[in-house]
Each structure stands twice: as C-alpha cells, then as structure tokens.
Design a protein around this nucleic acid. Sequence first.
DNA 1: ATGAAAGCGCTAACAA
DNA 2: TTGTTAGCGCTTTCAT
Lengths: 333, 333
Amino acid sequence: MSQATVSAVINGRAASSRIPAETERLVKDTIRELGYAANPAARSLKGKGNRLLGVHTFEAVFPISSRDFYHGFLIGVEEQAVAEGYDLVLFTSTEDDNGERRLYRDGTNRLNVADGSVLLGITHDHSDVARLSRDGYPFVHIGRRAVSGADIAWVSADYTAGTRDAVQDLIDAGHTRIGYLGLTDRTEPLADREAGYRAACAAAGIPPLPVLMNPHDLEQEWFDLAIGSGITAFVAEEESLTDRIAAFAAHRALRIPADLSVVTLRDTSGGPYPGTPWSSLGIPRNAIGRAAVRLLVETLHEPDTPRPRQLLLACAPPAPSTVAAPPTRQGVS
Amino acid sequence: MSQATVSAVINGRAASSRIPAETERLVKDTIRELGYAANPAARSLKGKGNRLLGVHTFEAVFPISSRDFYHGFLIGVEEQAVAEGYDLVLFTSTEDDNGERRLYRDGTNRLNVADGSVLLGITHDHSDVARLSRDGYPFVHIGRRAVSGADIAWVSADYTAGTRDAVQDLIDAGHTRIGYLGLTDRTEPLADREAGYRAACAAAGIPPLPVLMNPHDLEQEWFDLAIGSGITAFVAEEESLTDRIAAFAAHRALRIPADLSVVTLRDTSGGPYPGTPWSSLGIPRNAIGRAAVRLLVETLHEPDTPRPRQLLLACAPPAPSTVAAPPTRQGVS
DNA sequence: ATGAAAGCGCTAACAA
DNA sequence: TTGTTAGCGCTTTCAT
C-alpha cells in the first residue's frame, strides 16, 4: 500500500484507479484508526484548491457585527457558502497603517489563501481591484464596480430600475415636481439611482431637479425654496438626507406624507415619526450575497464556461408609508 | 538575485541575512511592479502557519447571523483576531449527513487549514474533541468542557460564582426557600450553575430545592405546590423556564417581583411583563471571545511557555428588575 | 493492481 | 554577499 493508493482512496479515485475494494476498506479503516488527516496546505499547493472562500470588506467594519450595512449581504454569502460546501475566510487583518483596507500588502496578497473571494464595500482606489483582476484571481464584487480596462464580475441591486419605478409611482400619484437629493460622493450605486430618477423624469416629461449635497450642508432656506418652487415629493439617496427633510418639514408644520411625499433609496429602519418608517427601496441583500457566491463557485469549477459576469437583482418597491398624492393646492383646485 | 534573497526580504530577514539595502529596495520595487504574491499554501507547507484562525460551531448555526446565542462570543473572537493580525475561517461546511457538525470527515480534518481554532457550542460527543487534542491541534474551547483524559483549553464564564452570588443576594433580601429550575440536559455550564446554587444554600444553611425538568413538562400543579411549600424565589437556568413561571404566576395573580422573585441564569432580552426584563446573570461573551483568541494565539506563538489553559471570567450580577424582598406572610408578621 | 518519483512554491541551511 | 539545494506533504504520471 503506497502513498499513491491512499491518495486515490481519499480523493474518491479508488474505482477509476482500479484499486480493489478490499484495499480501499483497509485504507479507510487505517485512516480512521490512525486519525490521519491530509494536509490541506499540501493539497492546495498541488492546485487542488482548499474550499475556502474569502470575504473582504473595504470599509473597516467587523464583518460579523450586526448593525451594519453589510450584514445582510454577509448572511446571504454565508448561506450559499454552506450550500456549496465551502468555508468562509473573513479577511479582517487587511487594514494598513492608514486605516485603509488593502488587498495587497508587502507583496503578499492575503486573498490568495482562499480559492476565490467576495469583495464588498466602496473604495475609491480601484487599483487594487484592477490588479487582482489582472492577476487572474477569481473574485466577485458585491455592488456594481466599474474599473476601466477590467471586466469585473459583480452582483448588484438594480438601483436604476428600482429608482425609476419608485419615481414613476410618485408621478402616477400625481406629483409633477419631484426633488432628488444625492450625496456629493458619486459612487456607482448612487450614480445608478440618479440615472433611474432622470430616466423616470424624462419619460414623464417632468423636469429633473437633482441636488447633490452633504446632509449637514442642507439648510432650511434651501428646503423652503424647494417647497416654494412647487416640489411635492423628495427622493433621497440616504436616510441621513431624509432625516434633514423631516426636520425642515416639521419646522414648517408640513406633514409627511399628507403635505410632502418622501422616498429613500436605501432601506432603513428609521422614519419621520415613531411608528412610521420611510418608504424605502428594498435592497435584496441576502439574494445578492447568495448570487455572488454562486457566481464565484461556478467560475471556480468551470472557469472556461462562458457565463454572464454581471448580475442585476430587482429591488423591492418602497412601501407607501411616506408616499401619498400631492396636496391639492389652495386656490388652484 | 535569487529565490532565497527574495524570500529573505519578504520575511523581513533582509538584515539578518546581510542583504544590502539596495538589493532589498530592488526586490521590494520589483515585487510591487510585478504584483508578486507569495503562495500562502507553500509557506504554510513549510510550517510557517498562515495566520488563519478557525471558528467551529458544533450546533448548526450560521455563525454570522445575529440573533444567536453565539453571536456575542463571535464578535469578541473577531475583534481580538483583528487585534492579533489573524484572519478568521468560519467553518460552516462541516455538517455531516446526520446534520451533526463534525471536526473530522473522510480523513480530512477541516480545521487543519487554520493554524488554530476556537470551538464553541455544546456537543455530547466528546470523541472528536478528544482526538483533536491527541493530534496536538491547537484549539481553545469556549465554555468549560470536561473531556476525560485530555487537558482541554477553555474559556468560560464563572457560572458557579455568578450563580452563588445571585442566590446569596436573594438570601440577603430575606428569601429562605429558593427553588432551582434546571433542564434535564446536564452540560458542564449548567452543572456549574447548579453547583453555585447548592454552594450558596449550604453556606446559608437553607435547603437546596432543585428541580430538573424540561419547560413543557412543568405544570401549574407543580408551581402551586412549590408556592404552597413556601418558596418565594426561583432561580432558573433558562428563559424558557422562567417564562413558564411567569405564566403560572399570572394564573394565580402573583406579581413578579412583589410576590415572587425570579432570576434567570442566562442573559435574555425577554421578561415577565413588557418593559420588565428578567433579572439575569450577565455572560461576558465579548470578553470570553477575546480571551479565547488571546489564549490561542499565545499558544501558537509560544507553545512551550507554561500558562493557565483554563480561564474563568466573572459574570455580571443580575439587575434587580425581577428581584425583591419576599412578601410578608399574612398572619405571620 | 501497486509502487516509484517528480514537482507544486516556498524556506533555510549551507556552499561558493 | 549571493546562489544552490533539500525537503515540507501531497497528487499524478509512468513503470513495474
């Protein structure tokens, strides 16, 4: 009984290697008795992979801790990893001295310990991702990421369609002047939302009214002007923005949604009043996480099979909690 | 410039290998330029370790998902792993056909991919753990685990002292007949709690009144008997048990804690009434998780340094929400 | 049907 | 100061 025989048995190649059933049983029994366990490092050195999937978050978060934007994705990633029989590596150690999470550090690409990785989070430094792609390392990004010169695999919510439909609903409800509130930081997912807004406006022939500002720069004066100009609904990229609106509206005794409709484009638990959650675009985090892992594993198993490398998953439409028909204008009706 | 030179530079042995600073810079620059990354499988084959710490949960839970008993431990584990510069492997794939999570499966000990592992959860099958210990694999168990013939490293809350003190507080409040409610399943952590209860009773010279039953076997009749026998306080191992007590007490119009004091020995978010949480023993989950990783990493770095391999961390004493002085008996005062 | 041997990419001892 | 070389434990091809 040689090394080769044992290897064949362990790898289920007993039959194809024409090893007699008796020998196979003997090997298995001996393995059990001795407590032998194949060294994963050695087999992975031989190019067999180690059934490890990495998870890398660009922002410095503890992936496990719950109250986090990324947590929902992670659950999906984990569920699918279990289903595929992979274990998960949480890359938590990749923070460099500047507090940024890097993929490469002093020559060692940490991700390499895993057969493939799921990347999530925003980074403005696309160079690491580009390099990863150049190096041929298998990865899937959660969230659309455009990196010039590289065909990045990603899975994202369809923010464009989701926003378009949400704005369309406002239009259907009778709104004709709909404000769009965006952050100054234009990452892909935010640009997608804005594009959806513009598409809906264009289709309905109403004017796009986008404002890109950081929440703390928004002033009551700006709000009063907007309302004065006839805006009856706001669509905002984030809760931090809608929260400002809620405050401004309260100052002017405007009720949400009776006097003003508000939709946020990232799902939240908060709302303008206790018990009233914001109407918000639902992000299918779990499904995205699962899809990312599925895509990654497929790529790992059959690298050469052509397959779509970018996946868009539909958003859940906003509940109508802070959306209503525009108020009937006094003196107009 | 040879392989050895590069290796020395990467491993920070440039100085000790007396490699000129110029060569070192050249190597580093080239590394950066080429995007070279040392193969972690190969270095770990060479016995260098791969800075991966495993996390294995015996119960079939998704380690990441939050509302879980284990989540608090996991956060601690993760925080300390980050601090020590290790990445985490979540072993999610170790479920066998019977739905049990095994350490060994068809000859391959999955844990071996990580330099060491943190184990958590209850298993009645100690054989895997015993074998792991015999094989010399470095691991730390979260929760006390007694495995005959093996000196298991573990970190646990000091349930014995915590329970003792909690019962002592009841005694100090004037209770002299204190019921103990336990599950029929006697795992180490539960046995520890019971021991603490018995110790407090013995010290105060009051009778220990333990009852071991599953929640659904507890009947109103039993409760009435207990109250009739003069019991004025219950200490229970779990919320499922105190919930039964709350129901029984409600049937007899007994108020908690005015008529009956109740303490649970595992922290919970629930309580007998909305807004009233159970007085419960606080488990320092985060600290336990951190301590486990610290112990594991110490063992990894200095296997031969003698150190305590079992750690007990103090519990937080119960808040007084469902604890009060016993009612003054009618006709006695 | 089984065994011998090469080599995966690295590290470290040693030779030059 | 740098290069050569022998493994680490496994898989796999080829010879027996």
